[in-house]
């Protein structure tokens, strides 16, 4: 079992002819993801190196191929528009990998998204993977194993680190999701925590947060309120980050004493979540939590 993506996923790649898009399309196809279409305006009617048909618009791609999920590798200036195109074509899931989208563009995207039935993952994220079934994004597939741990993270490589630790201990993953490092993202910790809580194939959840914002606190409050019983292991990156500075991710900034690693760790601990002090202890902590 898994959430959001799996054998049922029929993927359209927006920006399939760009350098990132074409490289990762090949990688996803190799992993076994069902890539059914690509979109590059102006190149409709062609096929890519893997024989995937290319369309001018997402709506055409959906009508012709039955695509239900999109992944976006479009440059930042045009990525907000690409997300809204996928939402208006009524796809179920939109995964945006692009880093560096202006915040004002994402404010507009969010307002369009809120009135729709689509779910957005990202932007500025590695993507989503259900090991052994479907990989959407840029993560190295080979470090993952099918299993029962759900992973939700704001980071890219730190997620790989956590997954690597899990797989080395024989703990496979139900689904792994990078939610993105920007101030405005489509799906939050809480949104996905709810899905993992309901998923029968997920027995434990890893939550990798970082400084900035209050998404970790909101997830903690939900766990307290609902009394969810699945074990959750968390790590918060950025305890050593100086206040007021943007630590790589646009969302990773501590302002006015809010969004600090300490306040997040306290909130999570208060909700009964095991918070790792060291990022090297994530795998072991899950092993212990599963008893």
């Amino acid at each position: 079992m898994s959430i959001l993506v799996g054998d049922h996923t029929r993927l359209v790649v927006q920006g399939i002819t760009g350098s990132e898009g074409s490289y990762h399309t090949a990688q996803m196809v190799e992993y076994g993801t069902r890539v059914v279409a690509g979109v590059t305006p102006g190149k409709g009617g062609q096929t890519d190196a893997n024989g995937i048909p290319i369309f001018h618009t997402v709506a055409q791609a959906k009508a012709e191929t039955g695509a239900n999920t999109s992944v976006i590798f479009v440059p930042p200036a045009f990525a907000g528009d690409a997300i809204m195109e996928a939402v208006s074509a009524e796809l179920d899931l939109v995964v945006c990998i692009t880093e560096g989208i202006p915040t004002a563009d994402m404010v507009m995207v969010k307002s369009v998204l809120d009135g729709s039935g689509a779910r957005l993952i990202g932007p500025n994220c590695p993507g989503i993977i259900t090991p052994g079934q479907c990989k959407i994004g840029i993560m190295p597939g080979f470090i993952h194993q099918p299993g029962k741990v759900g992973v939700i993270s704001r980071s890219g490589t730190l997620t790989y680190e956590a997954v690597f630790q899990l797989s080395n201990l024989g703990l496979g993953q139900s689904t792994g999701i990078g939610i993105g490092g920007d101030p405005i993202i489509g799906s939050t910790f809480l949104d996905l925590l709810i899905l993992f809580a309901e998923d029968e194939g997920t027995e434990a959840i890893v939550l990798i947060g970082e400084i900035g914002g209050s998404a970790e606190e909101e997830a903690a409050a939900w766990i307290t309120e609902t009394g969810m019983t699945k074990p959750v292991v968390a790590f918060i990156a950025g305890r050593t980050a100086p206040p007021g500075r943007r630590m790589g991710h646009a969302g990773a900034i501590v302002s006015g004493g809010q969004g600090t690693a300490e306040s997040k760790m306290e909130a999570l601990q208060a909700a009964g979540i095991h918070v790792c002090q060291s990022p090297a202890d994530i795998g072991e902590s899950v092993l212990k939590a599963l008893g």
Partner: peptide
């Protein structure tokens, strides 16, 4: 490589009694 891992690396240096010189 990667902002999250970079922060995590700084944190773990501190945890082992050192101080990061940079991000």
């Amino acid at each position: 490589n990667g902002a999250g891992l970079a922060m995590g690396t700084m944190d773990i240096i501190k945890l082992h009694g050192g101080e990061p010189a940079n991000f």
